[in-house]
């Protein structure tokens, strides 16, 4: 995962012209950028949504239901 991130960043940071691109004929630079950008958007957005939702539920469980939590068992509860 970490290696993937490092490589992804390196990939996005590298100038487009440094790559000989054999099969991108007919691709404009704008279009390449749009494909890469939307790939990133589509790939990261769902994770953001899911983890945002999980975080919200976690927060809600911390604030609303604390008394109930203490009543059952408080040790080491993980959010779900």
């Amino acid at each position: 995962m970490n290696a993937a991130r490092v490589l992804l960043v390196a990939f996005l940071a590298s100038p487009t012209t440094a790559w000989a691109c054999a099969v991108c004929g007919g691709f404009s630079d704008d279009e390449k950028g749009a494909y890469i950008g939307t790939t990133a958007l589509l790939s990261f957005l769902p994770l953001g949504l899911i983890f945002g939702g999980v975080y919200y539920v976690y927060r809600a469980s911390q604030t609303h239901v604390t008394p109930m939590l203490e009543r059952t068992e408080s040790s080491d509860r993980s959010p779900q």
Binding site: A22, V23, C24, G25, G26, F27
Partner: peptide
């Protein structure tokens, strides 16, 4: 193997 896409010229060797 390389896909041919209508409206585009794809290069290869």
């Amino acid at each position: 193997k390389q896909d041919a896409i209508p409206g585009r010229v794809i290069q290869g060797w």
